[in-house]
Amino acid sequence: MESESNPMAPTIDRRRHFLDELFALADIRINGDRPWDMQLHRSAALDEIVARHSLGLGETYMRGDWSSPALDQFFHKLLRADLHKKAKPFRNLWRIARAYLVNLQSRGRAFQVGEQHYDLGNDFYQAMLDSRMTYSCGYWREAQDLEDAQTAKLDLICRKLGLQPGMRLLDIGCGWGSLLGYAAEKYGVECVGVSVSREQCHYIEQTYAELPIEVHLQDYRSLNRQFDRVASVGMFEHVGRKNHRAFMQVARRCLNKDGLLLLHTIGKNQRFSTTDAWIDKYIFPNGDLPSSGQICDGAEDLFIEEDLHNFGSDYDKTLMAWHRNFEARWDNFADTFDQTFYRMWRYYLLSCAGAFRARHIQLWQWIFSNKREGGVTRVV
């Protein structure tokens, strides 16, 4: 639950608004007394939300025009009621068309998300994440806390890939190197990682200097080395629908004939949709969640789909754990980031938690094999 307070009391004189009726469909009241209700601090914000949809909702929140004591519950209810479909502006038609006509994830744009999002500072992410700096969904099946959940996820990946001492593992979009470090230390493999974030590469070089790990600041499309296994954890969301096939071709040429690819990615339920406008502008520029059909299209005739595992509900728990860490340690960064950033970041974490809770988005682990004969690859 969000520990939000605002000195402005919700006593604004206003007429009944279209959003009163719309929010009622999701059991949300404006200036209601329940934790998930919207507390309105500027009446003009309602017109902006209607006119600008998700972008207006997020930006008015960032300005302090409204609040909600339980923002995660607010979004859970909002998305479960499919209100985004009932008040969709026509400008989204252009955004959908643009995603199909323009390659928003071209080589020239590849490093933009690294600079805007992942390079905020390693100390900032260390305060929010687990000890291994794992910035993707944990596996909470038997875990009691974030540390255990992320360790379980890393081990699950290693077991699904069947890692053995002496193997070579490529991690496309390696983050701060949690999988590289875990696989090298626990499974005795040699690891190579690629990232578009300078901060992440610097961290890996310093943290894992004693292990057989190398990391490169490069776009995945330039990869052309052979490996026994390839993994990509939380990176495919940045690939984009016009590049799904190119990604799979890169993974195929980097795998030996008995190789396996593990693809860990957030996914969407509908093929013909586009990225949330607020997330695209403020959090993950040029992001594009894939649908299951788009992933299969990209892999067709290149790989055999051996296994699909959905544990999207675990991302709700992961995001809420990150939010608790963020809130608990915000004072360490209050002089570095302003209150607008503070509200932006909590909106990001809690709105995404609500989205996973509502099953509006998913978390998939796919296993693809490079085999053309023999038995089915076993997965845990």
Rank of each mutant, 00 (worst) to 15 (best):
P7M: 14
L146C: 02
P35G: 10
T336Q: 07
R42L: 07
D301G: 13
K86A: 07
D13Q: 06
S197Y: 05
D13K: 06
R132W: 01
G188Q: 13
R95K: 10
F74D: 12
L170K: 05
M167Y: 12
S195R: 01
E185A: 15
D301I: 00
D155N: 15
Q365N: 13
H76P: 00
L308R: 11
H264Y: 03
G173H: 06
V233Y: 01
Y348M: 09
I279F: 11
G293E: 09
I266R: 10
T274H: 01
G267H: 04
C174G: 10
L78W: 15
F303E: 08
C158W: 02
L350C: 13
C158I: 04
Q218K: 12
H17C: 08
S292D: 09
S178A: 15
L156Q: 14
E210C: 07
L260M: 13
L55H: 08
W364Q: 06
R271F: 01
S5K: 12
G312M: 07
F75R: 04
A149V: 13
Q294S: 14
F74A: 11
F341D: 11
R324V: 05
Y139C: 09
Y61F: 15
I279L: 15
R271W: 00
Y348R: 11
P212S: 11
Q362I: 07
H216I: 02
S136H: 02
I266A: 15
D20N: 12
